[in-house]
Write a protein that binds this DNA or RNA. Structure first.
Lengths: 143, 143
DNA sequence: TGCAATTATTTACCCAGGTAAATAAAATGA
DNA sequence: TCATTTTATTTACCTGGGTAAATAATTGCA
């Protein structure tokens, strides 16, 4: 019988380990994991309002502000004023667009290697078990 | 078919969600999640060298130093010099010993509630699937 | 119209993870 | 013995998560 503490302990550890691997890989592109998450998001959806980004990623607004400021400094994104002057619209720079395919491929390979010991069925199984953690009876999942 | 990116994205989100819940619970004890992890460790094994702690928890030494300094300030632990004058031995204060059972019970209840949607078998299944992530062929798990 | 409430973003400040480099003590070995 | 290497810890600094409170612009409504 596996103790519940062990499960949470390992969950925490695995996420730290994975983040470390991703950061190691991204080092060659002068990128960090959370910056990559935002690039991926912009690649998928095109230009987005800041609010759309942090709501989609499920993080707080100040966290996103900070990361975006760094990404603007390193020329991954630009932020332009929206018609509503409160909002800022975030978009990829041409340089980012250019580099994105290579980064995407690197990440994809890493993800494949990290999951290589699980079959497709096991990956699906894992995904749904994961999703059910933290969900109370009759409650909608928070993700 | 679940995309691998989705799996990692959700893994990250779930861990953030769980940590948030734990921190929320621990607020009443003026504790934080990583401090609790160390208390739990000391409760299990008794007084430990700092090195033993960070090796066991699989984090870097400076991270542990910082957390221990905070815990010393808030009177959860003391650090005494070992016979080897380089090392510091960490132990619970009497106050910590006193409060520990109540905190343990609170955490246990939270963990039960977080896992309430999974049967014991599913928890075991989840644990072993989790463990196999990041393990390359013929390699020993890193946790 | 004009004031109050809401919304988007930012600022300031926590905790928690990481790396690189500095110290200080102990162990090693020529 | 004593210089070198190793080990334990710390310091300084980075990213990335959080909260609370401050701005600034927009919306709503009497």
């Amino acid at each position: 019988m596996i103790s519940k503490s062990d499960i949470f302990h390992n969950l925490h550890q695995q996420v730290r380990f994975i983040t470390k691997e991703v950061n190691e890989l991204l080092k060659q592109y002068h990128l960090y994991s959370s910056q990559w998450t935002i690039l991926y998001c912009l690649d998928q959806f095109g230009p987005m309002k800041q609010t759309d980004i942090w709501k989609y990623l499920n993080v707080e607004a100040p966290t996103t502000t900070r990361t975006l400021v760094r990404m603007e400094k390193s020329n991954w994104i630009t932020r332009i004023e929206g018609s509503d002057k409160r909002e800022r619209i975030v978009q990829l720079t041409p340089e980012a667009e250019e580099r994105l395919p290579f980064i995407k491929e690197s990440i994809q390979k890493l993800e494949e290697s990290l999951l290589s010991q699980l079959s497709t069925e096991e990956q699906t199984e894992f995904y749904y078990l994961l999703k059910r953690i933290g969900v109370k009876k009759g409650e909608r999942p928070h993700v």
